[in-house]
Amino acid sequence: MIPSPFEYLAPTSVAEAITLLQEYGEDAKILAGGHSLIPAMKLRLSAPSILIDITRIAELRGIVVNGNINIGAGTTWQMIEHHPELKQLCPVLPQAVARIGDIQVRNRGTLGGSLAHADPAADITAVVLVLDAQIRTQGPNGSRSIPAADFFVDMLTTALEPEELITAIICPRLGTDEGAAYTKFPHPASRYPIVGAAAYLKMSDGKVSACRVAITGAGPMPTRQIACEQALLGTDGSDTAIANAAALAGQEMEILGDIHASEEYRRAMVQVYAKRALLKARGAITS
């Protein structure tokens, strides 16, 4: 439980953090909530020689609601879980966040840290995908906005450039004709999803006019379920339509097997949890 020696730096602005990233390059790691990085360092699976702690950068923290919802990358799970406006405007976020880890984890862990780490069993990645959120980043060449669909590249790999930081996540406000939900099958020890499913539905004139489904935990990276989504589009969104669409979940993604769940079982659960997420998303539509 003792990491290799490292130097600790704590910048107070995004610009300063980027300068440090440029200076130290691959020797440096960004430290946000630390709930993925620190355990890896303690097990000596990761041994960065420089830690750049971004938790003292005030501009990265906080939730601003205007046309959209702007969540600073350094915002903790706890802040998201208990944000009164979020509960009204995008309830799937606080609901999903409430199932991450435990209270201690949620007091430290951050949205930006989780996305940048891109753990294949992170919860929030699937939710960000179905909300079609934008990931705002900043680097030496300025800022950019990456659609969630383009952000996750592979296991533990994102579209983030080495000297870039995530600064904010932009999520939509959900209308009364929209609903989103996250369901998960947590591992009893880690509480990471063995399978997690997020779903977003929009109903117009009694038909599904928009639909997004994403699976986390089951494969190397969080993955949109396009076949499933397309099967549901234009239907009446009934139980039968949802069940038929959910049966297509998992088809286009690699499913992993390990000591916690075989590939066969995970594949079956992808369909079950996709269905449950869709049913729950439909239930969240208020108009």
Binding site: P39, H187, P188, A189, S190, Y192, I259, H260
Partner: peptide, 11 residues
């Protein structure tokens, strides 16, 4: 030991 940490071994 594949269940070598509290991430893997469920108490």
């Amino acid at each position: 030991l594949l269940t070598g940490t509290l991430l893997d071994y469920a108490i």
